[in-house]
């Protein structure tokens, strides 16, 4: 187990190095000069040149790249071209809001997904379960920007139950619509794997043995089936949560949610290189770490994987 974890941790550095390099190269080939975003509609060439020097954009590519690597290695993400603020500060400001949205969306997705999948797989409520699964499938099939606007229309304008948009200092009322909108992305797949996990586990030898031993349905479900069905759910939670943490651009834009996704898009539109690079690196690191955590959690949920994983 420890060897496995150590090996995985060692792969983080090259991935992040790759992300930094790719981001840097992408910045260079993107059309659109960053200084143009700073000067407005009426400017002269001398001003452009001066700004270029001030931002260090006149240095050769290799020098800028090495500079940036050096600073990143010292955990210095630099300052925004546009606002002059430290990139780390902007990220620190936005991340908690994105994390709140991502966490709530994931929670909703897991609760309803497992509920739907579980109900659909067995026993007394198969039709309720199938209906719920159908709803989750429709949810994941609606374009998110349309879904968001429809929800605003229904719940805010027509019914007047919830505020249409905004962060509202993180209060629950403001969180519901964007979190539900975002949660649909994962809910369907969670419901699906839960259902097949339940069905599969129910057919496994050890469950049959447990049943044969006379254990009640509840115990079997809790102890064995749930545990085994959990693994694919954790896999989905890992990848999806990892990517939500990087910000969800459309959901954030529709609901005026001031998170990381909008920061990244805004910086792309303004060609604010330091912010793009810093934010991308940050979200990539989160993604990798979340996935590492998921890998480790397999071993905790099911010890059999640990032994198998040790050999890999």
């Amino acid at each position: 187990m420890i060897r496995f974890v150590a090996r995985r941790i060692l792969t983080i550095a090259p991935i992040l190095f790759g992300v930094v390099t790719v981001t840097f190269l992408v910045m260079q080939v993107l059309p659109g000069d960053p200084v143009l975003a700073l000067v407005g509609e009426r400017y002269d060439e001398a001003t452009l040149a001066r700004l270029r020097t001030e931002l260090g954009l006149d240095k050769p590519l290799a020098v800028r790249y090495l500079d940036y690597l050096g600073r990143v290695a010292r955990l210095d993400l630099g300052r925004s071209f546009v606002t002059g603020r430290p990139v780390a500060e902007s990220i620190a400001e936005r991340f908690p809001r994105t994390a709140l949205l991502a966490g709530s969306a994931m929670l909703i997705a897991v609760v309803f997904g497992v509920l739907a999948g579980g109900l659909a797989s067995r026993g007394r409520h198969p039709w309720t379960g199938r209906l719920l699964m159908g709803i989750t499938l429709v949810g994941v099939s609606i374009p998110v920007f349309w879904l968001g606007l429809l929800l605003i229309h229904l719940f805010a304008l027509r019914l007047g139950l919830l505020p249409p948009s905004g962060y509202g200092g993180g209060s629950l009322r403001y969180l519901i619509l964007p979190a539900v909108t975002l949660s649909f992305a994962s809910m369907a797949s969670i419901a699906r794997v839960t259902r097949s996990g339940f069905l599969d586990a129910a057919g496994e030898d050890f469950v049959r043995t447990a049943r044969a031993k006379g254990l009640g349905d509840g115990t079997v479900l809790g102890k064995h089936v749930l545990r085994n069905a959990l693994i694919p759910v954790v896999t989905i939670v890992g990848t999806d949560f990892g990517s939500y943490l990087g910000g969800s651009v459309l959901t954030e834009s529709i609901f005026g949610w001031p998170g990381l996704g909008r920061l990244i898009v805004q910086s792309i539109l303004r060609r604010d290189f330091p912010v793009i690079q810093g934010a991308v690196l940050f979200t990539a690191a989160l993604f990798v770490i979340v996935n590492l955590a998921v890998d480790i959690s397999y071993g905790i949920i099911d010890p059999r994987i640990r032994s198998a994983g040790g050999g890999g």
Partner: peptide, 15 residues
Amino acid sequence: RVIPEPMTRIAEFEV
């Protein structure tokens, strides 16, 4: 308030 999406601004005004 920063509200990028026009339809969202309309909804905010309406409520």
